[in-house]
């Protein structure tokens, strides 16, 4: 679908200089003189590198029509994350560098959406929230419970999260995987 670059949104897929890219950020920008621009940060889904590009806001951009497929995250190795389509048992690999930091919150066996284009996996659709168990934490420090003090804890995937000091080992918490922020106890 062709759209005006001024309508580009975070998360959409475009072709830029021959490579499929995902829009990481798209911000309206108007220079003092001259027409408006759309400043975009595009992540190349092969090299995982970000490139900054300012589109003229009335420039036509082809947004790729991708599908999202429900898959199970099965495991990872040093480079890739592996997913399985539960209906076809087909496996797809995605480079960790492409999926990004968010993958440190993925638990094996979890269901997730993978974006596909022409039967090729592009990247994952980040879940709004993940639930993970705390496996390591210091004991709650006494006293300072009102000022919103935080402490680092380790969750079952090995990632570290800052949580309020009253949260204990063994509890399950919800996390916004995109920001890495604790959002509550479950």
């Amino acid at each position: 679908m062709r759209i005006n670059a001024g309508n580009l949104k975070k998360g959409e897929f475009v072709t830029f200089q021959g490579a499929i890219c995902q829009v990481q950020k798209a911000d309206f920008y108007s220079p003092g003189k001259g027409s408006a621009l759309m400043k975009a940060r595009l992540k190349n889904l092969i090299t995982a590198k970000n490139v900054e590009y300012a589109y003229k806001s009335n420039e036509q951009v082809e947004v790729l029509d991708v599908t999202s497929v429900d898959m199970q995250y099965i495991y990872k190795d040093q480079e890739n994350l592996y997913f399985m389509d539960e209906r076809t048992f087909n496996q797809s690999a995605l480079p960790i560098s492409v999926v990004g930091d968010i993958s440190r919150f993925f638990k094996e066996g979890e269901k997730m959406f993978v974006y596909m284009y022409n039967d090729k996996p592009l990247t994952i659709r980040p879940p709004m929230s993940v639930r993970l168990k705390i496996v390591e934490a210091d004991d709650a420090a006494k006293g300072d419970t009102v000022s919103g003090a935080k402490k680092p804890v380790k969750v079952e995937t090995g990632a570290t999260v800052m949580v309020p000091i009253f949260v204990k080992v063994g509890e399950t918490i919800s996390i916004n995987p995109e920001t890495g922020e604790y959002t509550g106890r479950v």
């Binding site: 920008y29 003189k33 001259g34 621009l37 300012a54 003229k56």
Partner: peptide, 9 residues
């Protein structure tokens, strides 16, 4: 003007 702004940005 527009091209100038685009390359500058």
């Amino acid at each position: 003007e527009d091209l100038f702004s685009q390359i500058l940005a």
